[in-house]
Computed example of a mutant assay.
Amino acid sequence: MTDRLRVAVLAGGPSAEHEVSLQSARAVLDALPRDLYDPVPVIIDRQGRWPTEVRGQADVVFPVLHGPFGEDGVVQGHLEALGLPYVGCGVLASAVAMDKVAMRRAFMAEDIPVTRHVWFTAHEWRTCGDHESLVKSLDWPMYVKPANMGSSIGVSRVTSMGELRAGVELALVHDRVVVVEQGVSARELICGVLGGHDFPGASVPGELIVPGEWLDYEAKYLSQAEIATIPAVLPERVAADVRELSLRAFRAIGGYGLARVDFFYEERTGRLYVGEINTMPGFTARSVYARAWEASGVPYPELLCRLIDLALARSGS
């Protein structure tokens, strides 16, 4: 059929989330309805080399890329320069969401609740004679994260200065800016957002099943254990607040297309905190984003179709 849209599915890339991206891309390629689309897999290698020129090979691009290079506005800017429609957030929203410092600034400017945190550069860490002073506003436990990374890569839960120093050094392998967050005793919730700038929708909330003290990379992508309960068992008021805050977070970064918003829910106090927003969440077979939308009445193939339609609508195609 010559009237099928050619969809270039970008995967791989030079970030530490290369393998996660490949898993996501396989799921997208398998689920794209063949009566509507002609999928074109484009695997970017670990050095950032593209195997082919995408312009002329595709009508629309689905950049299933996670982490730096793919989720931070770099690829989005390249596709903008090529004049190619693409799925997901634009350059600015992608960059803001990827940077945990900029993201929190955007949230706080819109009165979206976030946990206490501090951040510092590699230079500030190396030249500071009193590391404890950098985190004096926080209590144990804390979570140490690279400012620009996802999939729990480079993240450490720390309960002492020794662990903090090791956690910061690990984070600095991945980025020159480190964020240290206050740990909270809370349930971890997620909510999917789908739509354009006008009237996006929020899915039913889900709850992450956290083995041990936190959900690390191995639990997310290598374990065969169940990782989420969808829908989450929540009071109606809390579920409604999660959905409303998800839409506010999406708007705060200027989101478009899709995002997954992660929350901490303190049952004891009833407080909700937005942990982060992911502009290209995992699209593996176990993706909590896709499962949340399926539970909301949007099956995976339809979800992909809607995202492609949104990409074309934004470009005027």
Rank of each mutant, 00 (worst) to 15 (best):
A109E: 11
A109S: 10
A109T: 07
E110I: 10
E110W: 03
E110N: 15
E110T: 10
D111L: 08
I112N: 08
I112L: 12
P113W: 05
P113T: 07
V114C: 15
T115A: 10
T115F: 05
R116F: 03
R116D: 12
R116Q: 12
R116C: 06
R116G: 12
H117M: 07
V118Q: 03
V118I: 10
W119R: 06
T121Y: 00
T121D: 02
A122V: 02
H123T: 12
E124G: 12
W125R: 12
W125Y: 09
R126E: 03
C128G: 12
G129H: 04
G129Q: 11
D130A: 15
D130Y: 06
H131W: 13
L134D: 14
L134A: 11
V135F: 14
K136A: 15
K136S: 15
S137D: 13
L138W: 07
D139I: 00
W140N: 14
M142Q: 02
M142D: 00
Y143D: 00
V144P: 04
V144D: 01
P146H: 12
P146E: 03
P146A: 08
A147T: 03
N148D: 06
G150L: 08
S151W: 00
I153C: 13
I153P: 14
G154A: 06
V155K: 00
V155T: 03
V155H: 00
V155P: 01
S156A: 05
R157Y: 04
V158C: 10
V158N: 02
T159Q: 13
T159E: 13
T159Y: 14
S160P: 06
M161N: 10
M161E: 04
M161T: 10
G162H: 07
G162A: 02
E163N: 08
E163T: 05
E163K: 09
L164R: 14
R165D: 06
A166H: 10
A166F: 09
G167Q: 02
G167Y: 00
G167M: 06
V168I: 04
V168Y: 01
E169P: 13
